[in-house]
Design a protein around this nucleic acid. Structure first.
Length: 108
DNA sequence: TACATGACTATCC
DNA sequence: GGGATAGCCATGT
């Protein structure tokens, strides 16, 4: 476990239920631009049940990938369970569910 | 130390 | 909006 991964998992745990965020947002919250590194860290995901890694999607509004049980299919199911509808591998009303860490500060 | 790889993003057609 | 290309940083060999 690298310190970088801990930062990533910590950020993931901040994502509220029923919301999704992008790798870019996470990277920005961590004060870095290493979105690829974030993806790598999340991909490892040694904290599978501890961290809601399924709430992380690419900026394209699609599902992206998932290394857990069942892969993307499970990721989609989990999101639906949280009230986020997914169709054809794409998130419905993606921008509506999109969460940014700025929201935690109530700055908006 | 150097090179290759990856759950990505931005830019250009 | 969607495919191709380049840039990016952390990790592992």
């Amino acid at each position: 476990m690298t310190p970088f991964q801990q930062e990533v998992y910590c950020a993931l745990s901040l994502i509220p239920n029923g919301c999704v965020t992008t790798y870019g947002e996470i990277a920005r919250h961590l004060g870095t631009k290493a979105v690829r590194a974030v993806g790598t860290a999340v991909g490892k995901n040694p904290n599978a049940p501890v961290v809601p890694c399924h709430r992380v999607v690419p900026s394209s509004g699609k599902i992206g990938n998932y290394s857990g049980e069942g892969g993307v299919a499970t990721k989609i199911r989990l999101l639906k369970e949280e009230g986020i509808d997914v169709t054809d591998g794409k998130i419905v009303a993606y921008r509506q569910h999109h969460f940014t860490f700025e929201d935690l500060d109530d700055v908006l």
